[in-house]
Design a protein around this nucleic acid. Sequence first.
DNA 1: ATGGTCAATGAGGGGC
DNA 2: GCCCCTCATTGACCAT
Length: 228
Amino acid sequence: MDFDLDLGLALHDKYSYENFDSHKTRENKKKMESKNYLSLSLGPSKDDDEENTITQNSLTSPSIESSFSNSMNMMKKEIGDEFEVEIEKVPITRIGNVDEDGNSRKKLRLTKEQSEVLEENFREHSTLNQKQKQALAERLKLQARQVEVWFQNRRARTKVKQTESDFEVLKKCCQTLTEENKKLKIELQELKSIQTVAATPTFYMQIPAVTVTICPLCGNNKNGSKAR
DNA sequence: ATGGTCAATGAGGGGC
DNA sequence: GCCCCTCATTGACCAT
């Protein structure tokens, strides 16, 4: 996006949603509308105001109820058990906890139970079909979209972890090969010096030309048997 | 203050 | 052209 960074950051959500321009973004906008994305705005945050008033845009979806109640629980923890809640309905637009200015997104934290169930399902299959997604969403009182996002992010994390462990394996492999290469160079040096001495008329003898012949691609030695 | 985590977003691509 | 995916990124929240 090529707008002023400061303004852009402040207005990011609102801007990026309300100024869809390209073919692809229009398509995504349609997607978001058709999927009943929801808008949730929490009122004063703990930093903003001491008045314990919360405004919620929509409570029509279980997921929003869920994220809302999570936030409520968090606030309850922070400000004590006594507070009042004001709820007003607004048109459904998108997921995410954004106020009317589009600049106060509250982060949903999945409960321990929700995470455990999702994790459990992920272990069984890392992707979900429509039915599984819907069932899981209903079970966890989340939106199907949130379950989908969780699986997407979970797959991404798995991939990062896999890449990291692959890197470690390759690093170790590289160290071993470097070490081996060092040893072989020393061995070669020794053999060369022996050959030099042996080449003199008084100490003539046949030195085997090659001691190790391993195909770097298939790992076979020259006799066709597998090396190590 | 700062860095890590993770839910959410947007772009772009493939399959059908 | 819809649906679902990956990838890169954002931003709220949390621990230190």
